[in-house]
């Protein structure tokens, strides 16, 4: 594999791994704070899926890089400016409606991405995507149902759900940001055209919002960008700091 392609693959795999890791860590903050027990368990189950997915991806990133870095080296011993996750995922949880909106936007994205990525010519990515797709399908069903229930619920729940989807809207465009390296991988049939997933994504969320009697945000509204240029919102450094504190204080600790 050429040097450029290898660098591009490392970048892409790390991005997906970081997406899962940050999404999982954020969601785990709901542990013992859920609105009721079953939902508390549900959110932690999803967080666990994300952590499992990030373990596979960051382990693979280490293989692609070829410098013997492990999943833990990637998760715990990189500084926050080296993280590549999408801006949406580092946003604070807010209330349950905000977390539901975030989950919903991300689940639809994952569902579409992994549906395509399972056809990758890279065997590891294809195997991973086929596996993750099954989990993500459950996440999608779960978050869609909550959007419907809260949107088409009481006046209060509808107001909060609408606020959740509106407040996070400007971070959704960044999910689809691509780099020159991505184009290289795309030509080789290793990754799908991520930017091209957006039209289907818009269609799917619009359908659920309509059924939930929610107003679709303005598709032409301003969108934040930056994760592909290593620019993040202020929230990333805090979440990374908290996530890494034990591993940094006690390197190599086992329990």
């Amino acid at each position: 594999m050429s040097q450029n392609k290898n660098t591009a693959l490392l970048d892409f795999v790390t991005r997906l791994g970081d997406n899962s890791l940050i999404a999982g860590h954020r969601l785990s903050e709901w542990s013992s704070n859920g609105p009721f027990l079953e939902e508390d368990i549900g959110m932690i189950n999803i967080a666990l899926d994300f952590i499992g997915q990030s373990r596979i991806l960051l382990t693979y990133a280490g293989v692609v890089e070829g410098k013997e870095r492990t999943e833990d080296d990637f998760a715990y011993f990189r500084n926050h400016e080296e993280f590549k996750n999408a801006l949406l995922l580092e946003q604070p949880n807010g209330d349950f409606a905000v977390s539901t909106a975030k989950q919903f936007y991300y689940s639809v994205f994952n569902f579409l991405l992994y549906s395509e990525l399972q056809k990758s010519k890279d065997e590891t990515l294809a195997g991973f995507a086929a596996k993750a797709l099954k989990e993500v399908t459950y996440h999608l069903r779960h978050s869609s149902e909550w959007v419907l229930r809260l949107g088409d619920g009481t006046e209060e729940s509808k107001m909060r759900m609408q606020k959740g989807i509106d407040d996070l809207w400007m971070y959704t465009g960044d999910l689809f940001a691509t780099t020159e390296g991505d184009l290289l991988l795309q030509k080789e049939g290793i990754i799908p055209d991520v930017a091209a997933l957006k039209s289907k994504w818009l269609e799917m969320i619009a359908d659920v919002f309509k059924r939930a009697t929610l107003t679709m945000p303005d598709v032409n509204a301003f969108q934040q960008k930056g994760s592909r240029e290593k620019k993040h919102t202020e929230y990333l450094s805090y979440i990374v700091g908290e996530m890494q504190s034990i591993a940094r204080v006690y390197p190599g600790a086992k329990w």
């Binding site: 079953e38 368990i41 549900g42 189950n45 999803i46 666990l48 899926d49 459950y138 069903r141 779960h142």
Partner: peptide
């Protein structure tokens, strides 16, 4: 009751 149960593989 819930899509997610006591372990990843089970619903309630």
């Amino acid at each position: 009751i819930s899509h997610f149960g006591s372990t990843a593989c089970k619903a309630l």
